[in-house]
Amino acid sequence: MKSTNLSKNPVTIVQPVKGFNALDLKELFQYRELLWVFIWREIKVRYKQTILGASWAVIQPFVTMVIFSIFFGRIVNVSSDDIPYPIFSYAALLPWTFFTNSLRLGSNSLITNSTLITKVYFPRLVLPASIVISGLLDFCISFIVLLGMMLFYGIYPGLEIFFFPLFLFQVVVVTLGAGIWLSALNVQYRDVRYVVPFLTQVWLFITPVIYPTSLLSGPMRVLYSLNPMVGVIEGFRWTLLGSIASGKIIFGMSALTSLILLASGLLYFRQVEKDFADVV
């Protein structure tokens, strides 16, 4: 009773998932509309739920900057490479806040949407991705404050500013990479959610948010720049504030680890994705 099919309709084959799964870019592209809807939902909900709404995006890095300026800038007197400490730390807090907020929300993105995951099919990657991308709105809002500070301090970027998009891209890559890793790990290991705040705290100390990279030198500095956020923050300071560029090695190393982080995250995610609906 085998019947022919005129193949008017697309054919989908469902089979056991075995071995290695490459990233299905074509499918991701097909689901781009869903990605936008999730981003829209994320933004809408985030801004609806909080009384302060959009201003929250500014308050968080700004208040942190004020506290850092008082304690590290004034009291401890941390060097800031001849740039006023407030703007020195704020330029770093911009990508840093984006990074940590995205990790916090992104690592839970699969768990909080477990009802969706067990009821509807879509590439699961859109969930952590939508969190990271929607975080860019907060980033843009807090960026306006930076522009104000630049005016206030009379710091104007030079031609380096043309490299800025590269570092913006890098912070998205790093955040996506780490977010994807943590969200997938979180489905399998439920204590990851407790690890994330700890992780970001430790990560802060090995990242030049509070202090400049110039405190380190020699081989320590190279080792240090394995941290992809080092390149991001150095890049922000260099392109926006005109601080002394920290050298090709740091930028190159951290660009490389950023890409490795994202690629390995995508790979890992793809390998465990098939089990999400069963274990989440």
């Binding site: 469902v14 089979q15 995951i117 509807v120």
Partner: peptide, 9 residues
Amino acid sequence: ITFPDAGRV
């Protein structure tokens, strides 16, 4: 949503 351990659809 989930995948079979054997077979094909």
